[in-house]
Design a binder for these strands. Sequence first.
DNA 1: AGCACGCCGACT
DNA 2: GTCGGCGTGCTC
Length: 658
Amino acid sequence: MTARIAQVLLDSPLPQLDHLFDYAVPDHLVGAVTMGCRVRVPLRMGNRVVDAFVVRLVETSDFSGSLHEIESVVTSVAVLPPQLYDLARRVADRQAGSASDVLRLAIPPRYVRVEKAFGSEEARNARRDARARLTETLSNRAELIESAHPFSNIEPGSCRSVIMPTGTSSLPSGDVPAWTISVAQAAADALRGGESSLIVVPSYRDSDDFIRALTSLGVGDALVRTDARQSGGERYAAYLRILEREPVIVVGNRSATYAPAHNIGLIVMWDDGDSLFSEPLAPYAHARDVALVASQLAGSRIVFAGNVASVEAQRLVSLGFASEWSASRKSYPQVVPTDSLVNEGSRARIPSVAWAHAREQSALGPVLLQVARAGYAPALCCKECRVRAVCSTCSGPLSMPSARSTPTCAWCGAMAAQWRCPDCASTAFRLISSGSERTAEELGRAFPNTRVIVADGAHRVQNVLDEPCLVIATPGAEPLAQNGYRCVVVLDGESYRSRAGLRVDEDAVRHWCNALALARHDATCFLVGAGPQLGRVIATWDLRGFAKRELQQRAALGLPPVRRAATVTGPFADVDSACNNVRSIGRTRVMGPTSAQGDARAIVLFDYRDGDAVTSALRASIVTTATKSGRRKSGDSRTERVVRLRVRVDDAELGDSL
DNA sequence: AGCACGCCGACT
DNA sequence: GTCGGCGTGCTC
């Protein structure tokens, strides 16, 4: 008997359709319907035809009704390999979401032209030649990972948290951060053993650096890049490469964690504390969690590497799940913590010792100043009575985008040309903080013969040469300096201390270390306004101890990542009933629901051991509200918005409100 | 989402 | 007696 029944996953965001449906394979499609291919199937009386993925082909169906037939095959390319379905299912369950939502992030849209080009004889030959070159290169290459390597001796299927040595490496194509070489070596070694690697980085500029490092090792032919800057066709072409049953090295942003590469032996996530790893689309799975599930399914090694250890990675260490490797403190630059004197003007913002040293070093080579914010003046107040200037329409903070521009609201973008102080009626402003551009302007005056370079979200600079210059950069936008910076000054430390939230200290330390990591090993650096505790952490480079203490604090409070958390939002009655469905599970604690502007919100804290029970109960609530009360129509107007229950599991942004 | 089924008020 | 309102449920 032949497998004439296809179990398919419908490509629909409806939670009540998130399970496998059985369809009969008609005679004329036998052979064309393969596992993992895209098909179109009728849903309900044949009126509607929806896209679906064939997950399995079986001989018998458990469904009691009569089966409909698959209508057509969209493409016979198996875009959903079984391992990817398993991953999507596990991630969806963990997030109380739909597998099809996960697959929409994992599988790029189809491009017929790209598919045809990929399957052409010419393209196949080119790939075969590249493979032959690669085999040749790898057979001549000695093992790259030695015992001192941060990735040495990681057992298959196990996890490691690595605090990487800092510094830069020189390549013929320019300089790259030293970590990219270490990671590229590990990926090349895995490739030699016939294994694929997934290298997951926060942004495309990390990808650029890594790709140069990998190419320098001569294994560029195995590289597949996936990121959000690619066109749709490029993404699909990359996906088709990944699907080939050949080992590859995938580098990309958070979506690369889903890559269904052949025989994945190694997953590396760089700087997993970066908020870019938090997925903004349903079901909001954090790439770190996806990577952990993927490594478990593939039995691959997984490494969380960075200039710091995240609290989440440290938790894995403290559980004994992950081994740890930390760079020697001797390899770090010396950092002098200082306090700023006044929060105004460049002279006072930069303590005199730091000022003198930065001036001296900037005559010899590149010096980096990290400022907390981009733009000119991120905050303004009334010149007379010093009250904070806010937008008259939305009460957002007013800021100055450039030196002589009209004050603008940072939230709604409204121009405040006729601003008048609500307290004293004055119309004059005072600038109360400095962004990257104002800092550059001030320093340009103070260092008249030095070249000043601004690097922030609007001014992207990837590298600077080993020549005298002053670089003003915001966190995450620091250019790499050839041979390293001669001095790094981290300013605005106090701006972190005034923020509230669970992760502010962690983020501050991460941002500072990522800047300080760009200094030469013999540099003297300055950290301004960090306060005594965090200042000591950086001065002694006690990053592992810091992560441990943060973890202990979270444990004492019973907060993530020591416990898991889900936020539930929607109409009050729905949120309330969802909460009641989880309240009695284990040691689950429900905070709320609270009602704010329409939607109610509750936070559910639960133990890892109760994870399956809690997420499946939340999922059941979502299905119930979607089919019953969810279709409430407001009687008088046409604003019949379908209010649904939304659940975000392990949402990193939750920390901001705790 | 869509669409059918089903059980109560106004109608030829 | 029936027509049709939309609350409820299902989709292989």
